[in-house]
């Protein structure tokens, strides 16, 4: 299974209004790696994630997921490989009940009802939320919504998990549960976040981006202890490192 790689080669992207969100960005993430992507607001983190499953197409350069180059033809296939969890679970959970939401992906894969049920139960068990299955999302707490959003993505069994600010709006306990949950996944993980403690806990590697390009890339402890890099990018030392 050495082919679960994510490779960006000289990728640039310009929004229709003329903003250059990505400029000649290149990196390669190999199988099973957990990578944190950090940077100031507007540095291009979200745009980067939107390329991971082909919602946006690079203006120039190539994106390689698994063994597939991202094109309009391969988009659907790539979407099966990369599960993206968005920042706001309310946008992610668009079906009227938890069960239907988690079943959305498997049903779109054309699975029959029995296998769908198995998948849904498996995914909800993964985040210990099976008892929520008949509830509508608006009856859930923020932490529960995040868990279900992750389950909804895990139900399609993606090879690679990409997350945008997974812990935003979570209370400390829910955040801790989420971190523990993420640690148990053996997938390649790509996590864009301002929560440097979370990145430090979950990831081995860290990429810093600024103005759409990579400014630092290395082992997580190296980067998150480098005050200079962090401050240049409107970031601070992780709280757990500030005390000593």
């Amino acid at each position: 299974m050495s082919h679960h790689i994510v490779e960006f080669k000289n990728v640039s992207f310009r929004y229709p209004d003329g903003t250059d969100a990505l400029r000649d960005i290149s990196f390669r993430i190999t199988h099973g790696e957990s990578v944190g992507i950090i940077g100031a607001n507007g540095a291009g983190k979200s745009t980067l994630l939107l390329h991971m499953n082909g919602y946006l197409m690079p203006t120039s350069g190539t994106v390689n997921i698994g063994d597939l180059y991202l094109t309009r033809q391969t988009r659907q296939e790539i979407r099966r490989k990369v599960g993206v969890v968005f920042q706001n679970p309310d946008d992610q959970l668009f079906m009227p009940t938890v069960y239907e939401d988690v079943a959305f992906g498997p049903l779109n894969l054309g699975m029959d009802e029995k296998s769908v049920r198995e998948r849904v139960e498996y995914a909800l068990n993964l985040v210990s939320s099976l008892e929520l299955q008949n509830k509508p999302p608006h009856h859930l707490s923020c932490g529960q919504k995040s868990s279900v959003a992750i389950a909804a993505v895990m139900a399609v069994e993606p090879d690679i998990l990409a997350m945008d600010e997974p812990a935003a709006n979570l209370d400390p306990r829910s955040r801790r549960l989420l971190i523990n949950l993420l640690k148990t996944f053996e997938h390649s993980k790509i996590i864009a976040s301002h929560d440097l403690d979370l990145i430090m806990d979950v990831c081995q590697r860290c990429i810093v981006i600024r103005e759409g390009t990579v400014v630092a890339d290395g082992p997580v402890m190296e980067i998150l202890t480098n005050k200079q890099i962090l401050e240049e990018n409107h970031l601070e030392l992780p709280l757990s490192l500030q005390r000593n």
Binding site: L50, N53, Y55, Q76, R79, R80, V82, G83, V84, F86, N88, D91, Q92, F94, Y99, E100, A103, F104, G105, L107, N108, L109, E113, V116, A152, V153, V156
Partner: peptide, 23 residues
């Protein structure tokens, strides 16, 4: 903007124009 984000979430879970239903 929200509609846009929802659409993206739907796409990334294989939405191709039909809302699947369960009996």
């Amino acid at each position: 903007e929200r509609a846009e984000r929802i659409y993206f979430a739907m796409l990334s879970r294989g939405f191709q124009g039909d809302m699947p239903t369960l009996k």
